[in-house]
Simulated assay, not measured.
Amino acid sequence: MYDLTGFQRDLLYVVAGLDEPHGLAIKEELEDYYESEIHHGRLYPNLDTLVDKGLIDKGQRDQRTNYYTVTRRGRREIEARREWESKYVDLAE
């Protein structure tokens, strides 16, 4: 996960948190978080990068709609990142 941009990491987290989201659902979640518009030209190439890296899979719901799921490798990467973060950020204090 060290080689992902912050945006790509956020995409991975959103895909992991939703049940087979399609691109527009992911876009809406990120727009809520960033409080700004996410353009298709930014969203889909970054989703494709995550697919190429083996962190998410892309399926086809119909001829126009793809959906995304996190792979086992993607889940392992998220867990490793959370463990690393917990060494430095302890919110229980």
Rank of each mutant, 00 (worst) to 15 (best):
D3F: 04
D3T: 06
D3E: 09
L4E: 05
L4V: 00
Q8N: 08
Q8R: 04
Q8V: 06
Q8P: 14
Q8W: 02
Q8S: 11
D10C: 08
L11N: 13
L11P: 09
V14E: 03
V15T: 14
V15M: 13
G17N: 08
G17H: 08
G17I: 12
L18K: 12
L18M: 15
D19K: 14
D19V: 14
D19Y: 08
E20Y: 06
E20G: 03
P21S: 09
P21H: 08
H22D: 13
H22Q: 08
G23Y: 06
G23S: 15
L24W: 14
L24C: 02
L24S: 04
A25R: 15
I26V: 12
I26R: 08
E28I: 09
E28M: 07
Y33Q: 15
Y34T: 15
H40I: 03
H40F: 01
G41L: 07
R42D: 10
R42A: 04
R42I: 00
L43V: 11
L43E: 09
L43W: 13
Y44L: 12
P45D: 03
N46M: 05
N46G: 02
D48E: 10
D48Y: 03
D48W: 02
L50K: 07
D52T: 04
K53I: 00
K53G: 02
K53A: 12
K53H: 11
G54V: 03
L55W: 02
I56T: 02
I56W: 01
I56Q: 03
G59A: 14
Q60D: 01
D62S: 05
Q63A: 11
R64T: 02
T65V: 13
T65K: 02
N66F: 14
N66S: 11
Y67P: 07
Y68T: 00
T69C: 05
T69G: 02
T69S: 07
T69E: 13
T69R: 13
T69P: 11
V70F: 04
V70E: 06
R73V: 00
R73A: 07
I78C: 15
E79G: 05
E79L: 14
A80H: 06
R81H: 07
R81C: 01
R82E: 12
R82M: 10
E83A: 12
W84T: 04
S86Q: 07
K87F: 10
Y88P: 03
V89S: 05
L91K: 06
L91E: 14
E93D: 13
